[in-house]
Amino acid sequence: MTRPRTLARAVATSLMFALPVGTALAKDTGYIFVSSENDNAVTVLDGKRHQVLKTIPTGERPRDMKRSADRSQILVIASNSERVDVIDIARLEVVRSIDVGEDPEMFDFSKDGSRIYVSNEEDAEVSVIDVAANKVLAKIEVGEEPEGMLVSKDGSRLYVTSEVANMVHVIDTASNAILANVVVGNRPRRFADTPDGGEVWVTNELGASVTVLDAKANAVKETVTFAPKGFRSDDVTPVGITMTRDGKTAYVTLGRANHVAVVDVATRKVRDYVLVGNRAWGATLNRDESMLVVVNGLSDDISLVDTKTNKVLRSVAVGRVPHTAVIDD
């Protein structure tokens, strides 16, 4: 999901202050960063030849990653180390860490970039972290096993999935109060939202579906179900989701079904199923949206998909049990 570039100054101030004087900035390198849970590392691939440039050691069990708004750093959750590691793209190394509480899994930035919201799975909480001060500002109680995190386009709301409660919590970011608890499908995982912020899509891992929420009403609008040929419903386990900037197409990874669903957002129809690697997990688009990078957690690789043809261009080996990919372009 693309964040507004107005975040740049705030995140640059809050994150860059800790770096040594003279640290170079690197932007639009084309590098593909892939976190690998069992290697305690992030693999960096060249964006053209897709060869491994470097393996960056991190804390234990790196998972969710996002790029800072000034595009100079990659933040990665190290779940078993209870921290977020900050990777400098120019140096390709961890330059600082942020304490984020027990068993963190996913996170998102506040609109001004000064805070991150982190799901703490074992504690059934969301931690609100002051990035510059490396300080927990608040803890918000939510349902069991929170995972997916999404800050709304205007920054006023935080959406959190609770895997056990089959629920999406809608939180007021000004007061940290829960505004609504919306029952969705079985084991909700991750989010995408439309460009106008009017709809929030959430994947249901054990429901073979995506729930479409009306963001204004905090209510379920529709459900999109998936049935790739040759797979039982129990094997269709949607987790990752990303949407094009124009809001016309959503890509949903189908987990054990080893496919990505290409969905027409307006009609809610599945246009295509793309065969990728084993346990298709995360997905992200490059800047011009010509290529979809799919992270395959059980084949230890990524699939590079041509979005014009919906064909896999190639598969590239990465670390063991890859979780998330971020493209620096």
Rank of each mutant, 00 (worst) to 15 (best):
D193Y: 15
S127T: 14
A227D: 06
E147M: 11
T203I: 03
D130Y: 07
P238L: 14
T194V: 11
K221L: 14
R157G: 00
L206E: 14
G198I: 05
S152D: 04
V182L: 01
E121H: 13
V142A: 01
A165Q: 10
R189C: 09
G247Y: 08
E199T: 15
D196P: 06
T223L: 01
E147Q: 14
I140A: 05
A192R: 09
E145T: 15
Y251I: 07
T161E: 14
G240I: 04
A192G: 11
T194W: 12
G230E: 09
N186K: 07
M243D: 14
V151T: 10
K216Y: 04
A227S: 14
P146G: 15
V220H: 10
T253R: 07
V210N: 08
G143L: 15
V170H: 05
R245V: 11
T161Y: 15
I178R: 07
R190V: 15
E141K: 03
E121W: 01
V220F: 11
A124M: 06
S209L: 15
E122P: 04
E125L: 14
A138I: 03
V168W: 13
V128I: 10
A215E: 02
F231R: 03
V212Q: 11
V262L: 01
H259P: 10
D235R: 01
T211P: 03
V239L: 08
K135E: 12
Y159F: 13
L254V: 05
S162Q: 06
S162P: 02
V224G: 09
E144K: 06
D234Q: 00
E144I: 01
V131R: 12
V184E: 04
A177W: 03
R190G: 14
G198Y: 04
V136L: 05
T237N: 07
G207M: 03
S233T: 02
L137R: 03
V224N: 01
V164Q: 10
L150D: 07
D246W: 07
V160S: 12
L150A: 02
D235T: 04
V126M: 05
L150S: 08
A165S: 12
V168T: 08
V136G: 06
A138Q: 12
V118P: 15
A192Y: 14
D246F: 10
K135P: 04
D246A: 09
V262M: 02
F231S: 02
V224C: 07
D130Q: 08
L179A: 13
D130W: 02
D123F: 11
V164A: 13
L206M: 12
M149A: 13
T225A: 01
E205M: 08
V170R: 06
T223H: 00
N134M: 05
